[in-house]
Design a protein around this nucleic acid. Structure first.
Lengths: 125, 125, 125, 125
DNA sequence: GTGGTCTAGACCACG
DNA sequence: GTGGTCTAGACCACG
């Protein structure tokens, strides 16, 4: 599980990690039943404290994203069926795109400009 | 100057405001010489403390985004020439688009998917 | 706000405090808008660490029991109307009584025994 | 021996089991000499680890609630006479009732309210 | 002054 | 080994 933390970001570290795990699950890169790294391992990997990751896993568990089993580990929570997963994956992508377009529009860019910038960037995908 | 603050965001209020002002300047919605609201006015408009806006203006001034003149007010900083402004405006847009594409790619979306989502969202611009 | 912690209980300290605050709100001893002690004050009053109370307030806030305002303090969350409050108060009492009766029944006590014990204890209320 | 574990409770599993066994003995549902299930059986019945039940039996043995005989099994400890058993049974019931009344009183309920709630709940015993 | 995040480190519960 | 709770203490954000 590849996560990237920006320690200079004003977003709290725990929020950055939570966001990324949620995104990975929503996008289907982490699938129901997949094991997550142990708290101690992830903490050491990311160079943060055990407690910070413990909070992340607690939050995600409460929100039903993951399931933690005392003494046994942490896993991506089950989801009803494959259809729901596919829908979630689409919605996640749409949210990403919509958010970028919203920002651009708010800043006064015209749709042709945005479209051009998009085509341009997509070439070196 | 329209700013939107999300008090439930984990991003500090001062950071949200700074980001938005920087973006408005970069996108050319705020142009060199344009006046900014007084600290007191903006604070009251946004429902935040005077000190919070004072900090924002101090940061932006220090970074050369705005210029504060004691007793006369605060203004968007001058920029050499129109060309630079145009370039900044383009770069800002590219940064927005690139950031969205990066996120999508990291999450495992294929370029065709992203392209489709983009076209889709662009229709109700 | 009078809270009692049993440090020898196997119930975590934070859970004991959360339970008690929830009960006080449900029973109407703490009413919407009432201020709660500051985190630092309550921590020092109860002889526990700041972080423990911070967690309590965070949990209660997420569950909508209280509202915290950065820099300003923490308050019992608003509730629609007086009727709801009255209903909550009744339900809380019923939950207490039901829980005791359930336990007694599970342990094989007959209803007359329980009734007698109840009348007995109620005399020195 | 019917025991119910709530794995989401903040009370440790071992404490939940110990409490229930103690209560069953105090209430006379488990009588001196009655056999308890083997550690392995109970562990498998409850879906918990062998070590957890081993700890429970060790604690209960240490407290004189049960007696473990190597190779022969575990039994509810002997008690002098029938009178003591009867007294323990009454005290257990009183403890249950007192605890509920204490909680209600602390939360500001009036004795008539509690009495009414009690009568009410007792009807569907 | 009031709330929020993070670390280092100890100790417990469960497997 | 894996998750959970708690402390002491530092530093930040907001009013």
């Amino acid at each position: 599980m590849k996560l990237a933390i920006d320690f200079r970001s004003k977003l709290p570290v725990y929020a950055q990690i939570e966001d990324q795990v949620r995104s990975l699950v929503a996008a289907g890169k982490l699938r129901p039943g997949d094991p997550l790294p142990s708290i101690r391992n992830l903490a050491s990997d990311l160079g943060v404290n055990y407690n910070t990751i413990a909070r992340v896993y607690l939050d995600l568990d409460r929100d039903g994203v993951i399931k933690t089993y005392r003494g046994r580990g942490t896993y991506v929570a089950d989801v009803d069926d494959e259809r729901t997963l596919t829908r979630m994956r689409q919605e996640k992508l749409q949210a990403i795109v919509r958010s970028a377009l919203d920002k651009a529009r708010t800043l006064g860019y015209r749709s042709e400009e945005v479209s051009a910038a998009f085509e341009d960037q997509l070439t070196n995908w």
